[in-house]
Design a binder for these strands. Structure first.
Lengths: 274, 274
DNA sequence: GTACGCTATACCGCTATGCGGTACGATTAT
DNA sequence: ATAATCGTACCGCATAGCGGTATAGCGTAC
């Protein structure tokens, strides 16, 4: 029976299944499936309905899920945002980048984002968009693939050899069929980054999306990467060198910005969950 | 022993304790305690050390916590941000407010934020800051009290009678000693909001912080509130009427903005967690 | 040097606890 | 009216999670 929520080995006395399963429930929500019934969640997680009922009940009790008043379905409660707050706060150096990002977004009439790696994808932790665009598809906390985005390419290029090997290793085990292609792509990106100082992605993520990417180091020595991109109608292929140079410049300024000490040691001005 | 993680009644067959406790572990991180040992977590949560060890082990396995390479302590993994992403995405109407918020932040030389209620506090879901300020103390996902902030006051003032009663009820049970004072404050805020169209908070949250607040409704009929404020050196008490009017104006524009249909129905451009 | 505080990890017996069948009544859709 | 849903309830079972206690490894301090 031992259907461990996470793969992992057979039996692990120290693994709390209920917790892992509950997190799986939370993670099974997505922007397009943000209101789900117990049945939906059962399907999405592959867990039996009665188990889902228990987990959801617990999550409702603890306030991380609430029942939509109208539809009666279950939805993530904004309280889940508070779980991520300490992470955001620990990356506060990105705040110094915000004005620069906004400036470049306006200049390029596209979107500028900052992301870090999780597994084989990049998680966005900050973003700025051109003021004339209504749509900002990727928001904070969203996840984009590493192997098909300029951000991911730049990240890979700037990563140390050991991290690179680890990434490639993960790709190999995760999707062996695409591995060789992915490896070639990423190694190519590494070369491009070394040559030009930025990575370009022309229509490899989405057909009509172009972007450039540059890596940086956050205050806590966490590697991250900027990108700047948008629909090809606005971000033309010809403009990429210019944008790449500007993004590299932005990263340079960000990197060397004298950040330490600019913020007074501030206590946590938040409050308990009450 | 039935030490239920959440208060609640004695025994609830459908309550998964391990899950609730694991969430308590995640929630016990804060910006100032973002690297903790098992002992720290045991102290913070009040759970026995061996239990913590099991929960943390599970959270590490599932990737929501990682071991800091240097210190060997435990820290939240950025992956927790992805849990909140669907919430952010469901509130995408706030994106139309961003340029306006930025504009007002620049004008006022302070900070403009947008927040929604959770329990007796407000959770920030968007923020803009004046470009000349380095510090942005409150970030997305952070939590500020309702009874001492202009945002909270405006929210309360705009809430329906039933929600107001529920809020007051919670205050009464949560902190009876302060209840009468809080009630008076909130009722006063309601009156102020009805009179002026905004709420002011002069040094009630922090001594040297002034702010104004105005409520709005997000696309999904969720009540929310803007605030605009900052240190009294920049946001003087005299400027509050002007800022209040401008914030009310912003809210008005935001409210009536024709948002529906401006975004093409977009698929989730994110990717699986791999 | 040794005694201490702090790590994290391991072990282990117990039983409460979460499990997942299956069944029910209420809604809503076909 | 039939057919899917929805969520809730029940219940016997076995094990999964519990929390005590014990151990081993570091650093620090005295």
């Amino acid at each position: 029976m031992s259907d461990r929520s996470n793969p992992g080995a057979g039996k692990d006395r120290a693994f709390v299944n209920g917790l892992a399963r509950g997190l799986r429930v939370l993670a099974s929500f997505s922007p397009e499936h943000n209101r789900m019934s117990l049945g939906d969640l059962a399907k999405a997680t592959g867990l039996p309905k009665s188990t889902i009922a228990r987990l959801v009940h617990t999550l409702v009790e603890t306030g991380y899920i609430y029942v939509c008043p109208d539809s009666g379905r279950y939805s993530l409660h904004p309280k889940v945002l508070t779980l991520g707050y300490p992470v955001m706060a620990s990356m506060d150096k990105r705040l110094v980048a915000l004005p620069m990002m906004q400036e470049l977004a306006d200049y390029s009439r596209g979107t500028v984002s900052l992301g870090i790696r999780d597994g084989l994808s990049m998680i966005l932790i900050e973003r700025s968009r051109d003021r004339t665009v209504r749509a900002l598809p990727l928001d904070i906390g969203s996840r984009i693939p590493m192997e098909t985005t300029s951000m991911g390419h730049a990240y890979f290029a700037a990563a140390g050899p050991v991290e690179q090997d680890s990434i490639l290793e993960q790709f190999k085990t995760h999707d062996p069929s695409r591995f060789k292609e992915v490896e070639r792509t990423l190694r190519g990106a590494e070369k491009e980054y070394a040559d030009k100082g930025y990575c370009t992605a022309v229509g490899i993520w989405e057909d009509d999306v172009n972007a450039v990417g540059v890596a940086v180091t956050l205050s806590n020595d966490v590697l991250a990467a900027f990108n700047c991109g948008g629909p090809s109608s606005r971000i033309t292929e010809d403009s990429l060198p210019d944008l790449g140079a500007r993004l590299a410049d932005l990263a340079q300024h960000f990197q060397t910005a004298d950040w330490v000490g600019q913020l007074p040691p501030r206590p946590y001005r938040g409050v308990q969950p009450t």
